[in-house]
């Protein structure tokens, strides 16, 4: 991995006009993920004009406005469906989706599983902060059971989604998970996901110290980062851990990487067939 000075990355990919300071709270992980995305794209040397970033609604979904790509800040839960329209019409474009745990797996769960099933070539970067950050801390499908949210004042009784398992069950062909603490690993996973032909998901466990952290006494941003460092174990280490040590741990790594026919390719073949070609 080459090291490129942060400043150069910033001037290359951030919008110069008007849009700073950003909306995120101090200590929020969203900026770390944005950095990882920009560096991954820089490694790939992707043309900005040929790259689209689509998001839904949420703190995480505020990301597109800052980057100098073709950007679409769509509706809550619908980012993947909007992105599907772009990719389907212009398969030559690189289309990524930035979304949150609520955006992608609660209100947008249907689009998430169906895009994975189709194996359409989108890269979904899902920032999982275990909470609805933007609306002030209500529980999401990934808020751990027992945790406090503004709408689970007595503790959350909902079981949680394992987002990577959900994606794999639905047919995603590249699935990886890491944390905002592991920023370079995030960069590497994002790069591989972007290169992957087919539906890819990178789940990035993130810190929302201002809301989730505060409600659940997780300490400040640094404490939350340290917790990620401690609790997120690599695949190799995970396999060696005895069952009783797995509680509270997060599995990090590339959980699936396989090739299956990609949707827009299949459609192109269909068009060829219909038009009488072979």
């Amino acid at each position: 991995m080459q090291k490129i000075p942060q400043k150069i990355i910033h001037t290359r990919y951030l919008r110069h006009r008007k849009k700073f300071p950003h909306v995120w709270c101090p200590g929020c992980s969203n900026g770390i993920v944005l950095g990882a995305i920009m560096r991954a794209i820089d490694e790939l040397k992707w043309k900005r004009s040929n790259t689209a970033m689509v998001s839904g609604i949420g703190c995480s979904s505020r990301m597109p406005v800052y980057v100098d790509f073709n950007t679409l800040h769509s509706l809550h839960g619908r980012a993947i469906a909007y992105a599907t329209g772009i990719k389907m019409f212009k398969p030559e474009m690189n289309v990524m989706v930035v979304t949150g745990d609520g955006d992608a797996t609660a209100i947008g769960g249907n689009h998430f599983i169906h895009a994975a099933r189709r194996n359409i070539d989108l890269t979904v970067i899902l920032i999982n902060n275990y909470i609805y950050g933007m609306t002030g801390g209500q529980y999401s499908p990934t808020t751990p059971t027992g945790d406090i949210a503004t709408t689970t004042p007595y503790g959350n009784i909902d079981p949680v989604f394992d987002i990577c398992e959900l994606a794999m069950g639905a047919g995603a062909t590249f699935v990886a998970r890491t944390t905002a603490y592991h920023a370079l690993e995030a960069q590497s996973f994002i790069k591989q996901a972007l290169e992957h032909k087919g539906f890819s998901l990178v789940e990035i466990i993130s810190a929302c110290p201002v809301i989730y952290g505060k409600l659940n006494k997780k300490g400040d941003a640094i404490a939350m980062m340290n917790a990620m460092k401690k609790n997120a174990v690599s695949l190799k280490a995970w396999e060696k851990l005895p069952e009783d040590k797995l509680k509270g741990k997060i599995k990090r790594g590339i959980l699936r990487n396989e090739i299956r026919p990609e949707y827009t390719d299949e459609y192109a073949k269909l068009v060829q067939k219909v038009q009488g070609g072979k």
């Binding site: 992105a83 329209g85 389907m88 689009h111």
Partner: peptide
């Protein structure tokens, strides 16, 4: 291009996305 989406919300979303891409 034709695509049958998973519901009507996805359908209107997809056509807006495609329109922004020039369709």
């Amino acid at each position: 291009k034709f695509i049958q989406m998973e519901d009507e919300i996805a359908s209107i979303s997809a056509i807006i996305g495609a329109s922004l891409a020039g369709a």
